[in-house]
Design a protein around this nucleic acid. Structure first.
Length: 578
DNA sequence: GCCGTTTTCGGCCCGACTGTTTTCAGTCG
């Protein structure tokens, strides 16, 4: 992992906050932009520096003379003087304090100067003992909000996995949509961009009676606190630990508002700049030429007015999508409707909840033309993994099910696979002779996750070189917000996958989402094929496919990159011939 | 502090809401 990049990005972000406190104009954004670039950088920044010195650093967007010198200083001494000076002057735990809703750099500075508050604990103590309310510019309400902000922060720990939020949001979305006063409604923000973690939820509405919709919104079950309610915006905190905003916009501005509130912020800065370059003004109310509105009703109109094709929300992250749009190179993203089957499903053979037939029925109900049953194998005792003998029995059982479908004229196929284990030495826990009889083989790392990188790569490489192994499941082993990836070298993994024709999984479980979006993009660039799987242990979990598709779309994946977006015949050609 | 087929100087995205003021600063998105 690019450790130095993350370290320096963190420092630059902190610097931006210090500069905000000092009310220095424009520099904060410059530091933030540089931090963002470093985080997105493919290469370890120390390698960039070794390759071409400061000059090479200055080719990174947002890095110029001064910041390249600071990076150089950090690489040489492990410190940045300008940063140390700020820290000395204002020894604050900035990230912690900024996390409190309603606290920004200005208030933080006052709290430090007047009360010596430098971290969350001191802030809480001062609020409890009512030291904050009497300060000039503060008040009883501010003090109370700070306390509540701290409370929520403790409980929510910031962003939540999308899977924790989506089910609640779907219910609320439907309720709002059914209101007779609601003419149009959409999700916006990071949820519409399908980010893997969500800070808060944004709803955008066109309404006949604004007040009625607002009142209904703030009284929804699960609302714990109303942050605010005005003429066009209401903001609430939910018991589940996240915030929701509802905005009501005029119909003629709906598209512009949707574009604006979907973000990302970085994407919007670029679209606004493009508008300015064309002598236009883009705001959440529309695209304006002077005082005249020239677009705004739909998002497509807005993009068209500034000379761009429609850009899918999942791509709006300032990761080159504007450039691609300008040059007509936008990908045609894979969609849920393209998915033809699910290849990573567990049955009751390995302790799952449902039988093969029940899982197959669910697949048919989803409109799939096949399902792959891939139960755990014997190394995973805890999952009642199958041994060679059981696998061969299961093979016969599946043949029988397929024969049954044929007799009844049902055009559906059950493929027989397994999710085998990559042992520490890279061998598979099932004999090659049995693996060769299956339709396909998934292999995954389920043990010894803390191996050193070289060992782990040797292990995974050997597995991919196995002519029976077709798919690597959850290739980096991370759990969203819970467990880091194991040590690996992704470029190396891609090279081996390419050489051996091994497919990488995009595990759709919202708690895995492994591969990550940026890795998907790199795999696509290398021409490595991927498969979107739910890893369902019961039939209902097969519905999680949409999370995987969203993740794939965030990685710019197209239909041809995803093997289970192909017909069954075509799919079979991607498996290694053994 | 960065950036540039309009520029090496002069720009840098823009508006709503809250809580505190008594006309607006700070924060958020």
């Amino acid at each position: 992992m690019r450790v130095k990049n993350q370290e320096i990005a963190k420092i630059f972000n902190e610097m931006a906050r210090f500069l905000q406190i000092e009310q220095v104009p424009f520099k904060p954004q410059a530091y933030q932009k540089a931090a963002f670039s470093l985080q997105a950088l493919k290469e370890e920044v120390s390698e960039t520096y070794l390759r071409g010195g400061k000059k090479a650093l200055q080719e990174i967007p947002g890095i110029g003379k001064s910041l390249s010198e600071q990076i150089e200083e950090y690489l040489k001494t492990g410190k940045i003087k300008a940063y140390s000076q700020f820290r000395k002057k204002l020894p604050l735990n900035m990230a912690e304090l900024m996390g409190v809703e309603g606290l920004g750099p200005r208030k933080i500075k006052i709290l430090y100067q007047k009360l010596g508050i430098s971290n969350l604990k001191e802030l809480e103590k001062a609020a409890i003992t009512h030291k904050i309310a009497p300060l000039f510019g503060f008040g009883a309400k501010t003090e109370e909000n700070i306390l509540q902000g701290i409370e929520f922060l403790k409980r929510s720990k910031g962003r939540l996995p999308i899977g924790d939020i989506m089910p609640t949001v779907n219910i609320i979305f439907d309720e709002l949509r059914r209101l007779p006063e609601v003419k149009k409604i959409s999700l916006a923000g990071s949820l519409r961009r399908r980010k893997e973690t969500i800070g808060d939820v944004d709803f955008l509405v066109v309404a006949k009676h604004t007040k009625k919709v607002m009142d209904y919104f703030v009284k929804l079950p699960g609302v714990e606190k109303i942050w605010g309610q005005g003429g066009t915006k209401a903001s609430v905190h939910m018991v589940n630990g996240f915030d929701m905003d509802l905005r009501v916009v005029p119909e003629k501005s709906y598209g512009a508002a949707l574009q604006y509130f979907t973000g990302s912020k970085e994407h919007n800065i670029l679209t606004r700049r493009i508008a300015i370059d064309k002598g236009l003004k883009l705001s959440e109310y529309g695209v304006f030429k002077g005082a005249k509105q020239v677009a705004g009703k739909t998002e497509a109109d807005v993009y068209a007015a500034i000379g761009l094709p429609f850009i899918e929300p999942e791509m709006r992250e300032d990761q080159g999508e504007i450039d691609a749009a300008l040059h007509g190179n936008l990908p045609h993203l894979v969609a849920l409707e393209d998915i033809t089957g699910d290849l990573h499903c567990h049955s009751h053979w390995n302790g799952g909840k449902h039988s093969i037939e029940q899982m197959a029925q669910q697949a048919m109900d989803l409109g799939y033309s096949y399902i792959g049953i891939s139960d755990h194998t014997k190394f995973l005792q805890i999952e009642k993994g199958l041994d060679e003998k059981k696998l061969l029995e299961q093979h016969k059982a599946i043949q029988k099910i397929n024969d049954g479908y044929k007799k009844k004229g049902i055009a559906f196929t059950v493929l027989h696979g397994c999710e085998s284990n990559i042992l520490n030495d890279g061998s598979i826990d099932i004999s090659d002779e049995v693996l060769a009889q299956l339709d396909y083989v998934i292999a995954g790392v389920h043990s010894s996750l803390k191996m050193p990188k070289d060992q782990m790569m040797a292990r995974i490489t050997k597995a991919m070189q196995n002519p029976n192994v077709d798919i690597i499941s959850h290739p980096t082993g991370r759990l969203v917000g819970k467990r880091d990836e194991y040590e690996h070298d992704f470029d190396n993994m891609l090279q081996v996958a390419k050489e051996t024709g091994t497919i990488l999984e995009i595990n759709a479980s919202p708690y895995r989402l492994d591969l990550r979006d940026l890795y998907i993009r790199r795999a696509k660039a290398e021409g490595v094929k991927m498969v979107i799987d739910t890893d369902a242990h019961q039939k209902e979990q097969m519905l999680l496919m949409e999370y995987g598709v969203w993740q794939a779309r965030r990685g710019w994946a197209e239909k041809e990159d995803i093997i289970n977006a192909q017909s069954l015949d075509k799919l079979m050609q991607y498996f290694k011939k053994t």
